[in-house]
Design a protein around this nucleic acid. Sequence first.
DNA 1: TTAGGGTTAG
Length: 843
Amino acid sequence: MKIERILTRIYDPRSPNDPRRDPDVNNIVSSSVDICCFEISPKGIEMLWRTVPKISNRILLCLSEDICSQVLSFCNSKSIKEGVCIHSPIIKLGLQDELFLNNNLLSLYAKCFGLEHARHFFDEMLYKDVVSWAGMLSAYVRQGNHEEALELFDFMKTYGQYPNEFTLSSVLRSCSALKEFNQGTQIQAYMIKTGFESSPVLGSSLINLYSKCNCFEEAYKIFTCVNNRDIVTWTTMMSSFVQAQNWSQALLFFSDMIKAGVPPNEYTFVKLIEASISLGSACGKLIHAQLIRWGVELNLVLKTALVGMYSKCGRMEDALKVSNQTSEFDVFLWTTIINGFNQNLKFRDAIAAFREMMISGVVANNYTYSTILNACSSILALELGKQIHSQVIMAGLENDASVGNALVDVYMKSPHMIEDALRAFKGITSPNVISWTSLIAGLAAHGLEQDSFQAFYQMQLVGEQPNSFTLSSILGACGNINSLTQTRKLHGYIIKTKANDDIVVGNALVDVYGRLGMVDDAWGVISMMNRRDAITYTCLATRINQMGYHEMALNVITHMHDDSVKIDEFSLAGFLSASAGLGAMELGKQLQCFSVKSGLGSWISVSNSLVDLYGKCGCIQDARRAFKEISEPDVVSWNGLMHGFASNGHISSSLSAFEDMRLAGVKPDPITFLLVLFACSHGGLIDLGLEYFKSMTETHGVTPQLDHYVCLVDLLGRAGRLEEANGVIETMPFQPDALIYKTLLGACKLHGNIPLGEDMARRGLELDPSDTAFYVLLANMYDDCGRSDLGGQTRRMMRESGLKKNPGQSWMEIKNTVHLFTAGDITHPLVDEVLKEEISSSI
DNA sequence: TTAGGGTTAG
């Protein structure tokens, strides 16, 4: 019989048989309950209990204790919230102190009406048994209220209730979540005393506790002691291997589990997938295949784990394919997809996915907002960032740390929104270490290093301890302003707090000492580090290379090799750049062979360095070929090609490369325009150069920097348009530096304009009295104009002020060895270039 | 026939 039909008979007011007059009502209700409980869908029960309070007392009284128990346990097992309606008949039947009924009701309150209702009900219970305590405990644990769970457990003991397996497992879960190791081991001692030690349930909880507290060996010992290990015991142990980042062990353990005759389930696969991520996409695919082979159903969590795995392996298409295999989508899955796009640098797709999620009606949470804000920050979509910010406010999430941090990051990306970033920071209720780090890094990126130091001290004042990222950001700020004092102070702090055990901090220290030109100190840090990686050596080599010590930079390769650190795409690019700086063609070629063998050649950083290498070595055909091999050249590739052409005198090729770049849809950057202006200047293409300079702001949205004005002055100066060049210096929106005066002085020398040249030398020396180039250029200008008397006088002045010119140097490679030459009196970097060209053509 | 262990996003 269908429940709906019976209910209609009872409740339909148009029914000729009013239930209150029905002599068989007791049977009907009883039979209907029987049907509800054992045959009919939860919907039927729901319909029944929605209307129960409307039924007369007589019918309610017809419900027996037995029926109440059956219905309640049914409702409880299915989490049917209407089941609590039976509370009132229970009272009317005088059954309010029946433990079984109350424990069921407690569980239902906890599941459907929240912790407060449940706790209220629990406190009102006159009698409590261990099941009541376990029910309340598990409610706290399920909701993640672990502190309250542990408090309740203490209360239970003072109440005189002995714990059993159920209560212990809940408490162990809270201990794991709170990393309450000592309390956990006290429970373990109690387990040993009471003989629960080998229980698979408590064993799993203990394995979890030890793993969460990073005691992996002990966790494994417990696993070996558990009797009748089930799938949960095995999966918990596998989870422990994954947490210990022992990926291969996790996979080997899987085969042990199969051999032990325990079939895997969806939980097992979630962990296997996580382990496979670090072992590469082939391994991930293998696990996916196993999952299908074992016939494990694709639930949302599993699907999310697979999507995460494929996106982390750079296989976004596979990730999307998996996500569409079932129609279930929740906020976890969407956030993983959006984040997957971010990881694969497909920020526009991330934004599109976010929109799709909103349309589908899934509500974004704090994680989703922080992820989408990261996408906005990465592509500088500041307007969208502001829109998302208003959504965040509407959702009441602006106080959340992860959202606030992402907002700080977005606003810090704009040169004009620092106030908004500070406001976003102040809006975070409890700023965490990431919030402070975003603030510190953002301030440093805006050139507000002193403010970032201030924030660094303030965070410590409020009791937030810096982590490795904070320290590397603040060390970056020290490097920006070349502050040895701050660096030393921080280095002391790092040693004191033992933060130098962290490789990120060690690398940042190496970098800052490198930037300060203190190579010995950088090596000192390296020798103290527990472990070094490719980043350590790349930082060192790059900084040494920037100082001009290309050969010393290349020596780092040997140190890396001795330290068994593999060369990666970044270090290789750095070494290629050092070879380029040295003009060491043979070594560069060896490195290129290595790039092919190691498979690193497909990285654009490596290809770009090759273009640069060949360009700097004057092998323009090789540079062109290296460029052609790049499947999707970026702005750096194009800049490399243009530089190769221009520095080898192929002015028109350089400028046509610029036009090709525009046609290819690659956006020029400030460096591109330096190269364009350089090419025009060297090709005597004055008007074209001026056109390009104008187009920077008007067409390309690139704001000229001081460097560009230097190029402009060079362009006009070389052409003899000295007054115009001087006008540029007078009217540009920057304070002139020594270089720009030097540039115009060089032009004055070329065109014999003594008064302007003298003026430039005077202004330049005011800025930097120790720069010998002014004296040398000035003296040479006098000589060229037939005023050797003044030339000699200038040189004397220089000597009298204690200044000595650094000798110009050049080098050439003969039979794999680079030979350094020191020239007698080379005054200008351009002359150096000429000499280098002469040397290379004479070989 | 009430209470328990292992899973996903930054």
